[in-house]
Computed example of a mutant assay.
Amino acid sequence: MSSGRGMDRFDGASRVLLKNAGNARTANDRRRNRRRKNRKKKKKKYYKFLKPYNQDHKPPTKKDLVYLEDSPDFCVRNRKLGIRGTSGRECNKTSIGVDGCDLMCCGREFHTRVVEVQERCSCTFQWCCEVKCKTCKYIKTIHICS
């Protein structure tokens, strides 16, 4: 959803409930409809079976984005749903994206630590079929959600 219009629809999505419309057709109606093979089928308007969760909102149209249940809170650990939460996750202090500390930590604090990191570096390919690397050490500042 990179377009602004799509994101507006996403942000403006409304929660709905299903109406209990039932099935008003009788057995005779169904038999008659089976004989009408040449007639064009009428598309069902599923949005007509939806009513707003909040009675103060207008009923949805076919262009509205709707949902039936609230999404779980991914900020908080929930073992039953398998959600680990964001506590203890590393974030990027300078990013304004989803990896940024403000969003990743869900508005909670984050801690800053300085750590020594070891990783492979200066790797070269040796003929045939071997890669040789050095081990480089450097100091890195990391930020971790509380």
Rank of each mutant, 00 (worst) to 15 (best):
M1G: 03
S2W: 03
S3R: 06
G4L: 14
G4E: 15
G4N: 10
R5M: 08
R5I: 13
R5N: 07
G6N: 11
M7D: 09
M7A: 15
M7S: 12
R9W: 05
R9H: 10
F10R: 02
F10V: 13
G12H: 06
G12E: 09
A13S: 13
S14W: 00
S14H: 05
R15N: 04
V16G: 03
L17R: 14
K19E: 07
A21S: 08
R25I: 06
T26K: 08
R30D: 03
R31Y: 04
R32V: 09
R32A: 13
N33M: 12
R34M: 08
R35V: 03
R35E: 08
R35G: 10
R36I: 02
K37Q: 09
R39N: 04
R39Q: 10
R39A: 09
K40I: 12
K40R: 10
K43G: 07
K44V: 15
K44L: 15
Y47D: 01
Y47E: 07
Y47H: 12
Y47T: 01
K48H: 13
F49S: 15
L50S: 05
L50N: 06
P52Y: 06
P52V: 09
P52Q: 05
Y53M: 04
N54A: 09
D56C: 06
H57Y: 08
K58T: 15
T61A: 13
T61M: 11
K62V: 04
K62N: 07
D64Q: 06
L65H: 02
V66F: 03
V66T: 14
Y67K: 04
E69P: 00
D70W: 02
D70V: 05
S71G: 05
P72N: 04
D73S: 12
D73P: 11
C75I: 06
C75W: 03
V76Q: 11
V76T: 13
N78E: 02
R79F: 01
L81E: 09
I83S: 03
R84H: 10
R84M: 07
R84Y: 04
T86F: 03
T86A: 03
G88S: 05
G88T: 05
G88Y: 07
R89M: 13
E90L: 02
C91F: 05
K93T: 03
S95N: 02
I96D: 10
G97T: 15
G97L: 10
V98W: 12
D99G: 14
D99N: 15
D99A: 14
G100H: 09
G100T: 10
C101L: 13
C101I: 13
C101D: 11
L103I: 10
L103Y: 02
L103Q: 11
M104I: 05
C105N: 09
C105G: 09
C105R: 08
G107Q: 14
G107H: 11
R108H: 10
R108Q: 12
R108D: 05
F110N: 06
F110L: 01
H111I: 11
T112P: 00
T112Y: 00
R113C: 01
V117I: 15
R120W: 10
S122E: 12
C123S: 07
T124G: 00
W127R: 04
C128T: 03
C129D: 01
E130H: 02
V131Y: 03
K134D: 15
K134H: 05
K134W: 00
K134C: 00
K134Q: 09
T135K: 10
Y138E: 05
I139C: 01
K140H: 09
I142G: 00
I142Q: 00
H143G: 00
I144K: 00
I144C: 01
I144Q: 01
